[in-house]
Nucleic acid binder design. Structure first.
Lengths: 147, 147
DNA sequence: TATTGTTATACTCTATAACTATA
DNA sequence: TATAGTTATAGAGTATAACAATA
């Protein structure tokens, strides 16, 4: 066993380092947790969505979304409302303050991503992307569909 | 912002799923934590090493190693001794029980890795490997050498 | 003074499940 | 009965720093 060459270990080490490089921006600078960041990022795309869809989009479970949204609501960044079509659902949407925060945060986060991706040639980025897709597909089969 | 295409998010999701697929083996079946597994895996290669080197090898900090080794020692899997050359160091080495556990665990863990890597053609594995190397190198520069 | 390793502490995150309300 | 979401709680992991022993 060579730990340094063991793919799951290597993947974990790189992913953690990359995550920290991004968290430097949203955590230290905007006080967001990872889950809050993910919910906001999902909302940045759609503007509004159901809690359940936020969970799917952001690869979080319903409890993580519930808590992240509660914190985001307390901070005035997101509003929650009922879905008239099915009153079990909650519709989440960015507040003006949430939108303003994202307008400031997203360029910073994307700049960090770009700094990291600068390590890879375009073909290498595509190869990484494809490999991640295939691995994710595979791992969900190996573990029986769990996250 | 498309979260689904944001590399750090994708990397985190895949790495977490892959980590769980491996942890299924060492945690549910052998009762090891991730840090304990990493220390054992590092020792599997070298047989014995200093705590400090285990930390470097396994990308853990000294506190994580100290606690993992304490647990492994309680479980009779690893022994700690002083380094006569520098009595601040601790020399870690696998006990016979630790070796026996690894002899059973390693093939299972490697089989899981192989199941996952089966998703990738040989050239794709090399491409993934190269991309991870380059990203890790880059991220350590971006964050100033921190883990 | 610097380094190795241990211990303490508070904090955060995770896992599980119970619970409410709606369907 | 099943689903969306909330709340509770215990356990695990993380971050920081103080500390002891040695160099």
């Amino acid at each position: 066993m060579k730990l340094q060459q063991f793919m799951p270990y290597r993947l974990a080490v790189v992913a953690e380092a990359v995550s920290r490089a991004i968290a430097d921006v949203y955590r230290e600078r905007f006080g967001l947790s990872r889950d809050e960041w993910r919910v906001l990022a999902a909302l940045a795309e759609a503007g509004e969505m159901k809690s359940r869809d936020a969970a799917l989009q952001a690869t979080l479970d319903k409890m993580q979304v519930s808590r992240a949204v509660a914190a985001l609501e307390r901070a005035g960044l997101v509003a929650r409302s009922e879905d008239p079509a099915d009153r079990r659902n909650r519709i989440l949407r960015l507040s003006p303050a949430g939108r303003a925060l994202l307008d400031e945060l997203l360029p910073m986060v994307e700049a960090r991503e770009a700094e990291l991706l600068a390590a890879l040639a375009p073909a290498e980025r595509l190869a990484l992307d494809a490999a991640l897709d295939r691995l994710l597909d595979r791992v969900s089969r190996v573990r029986g569909g769990l996250s």
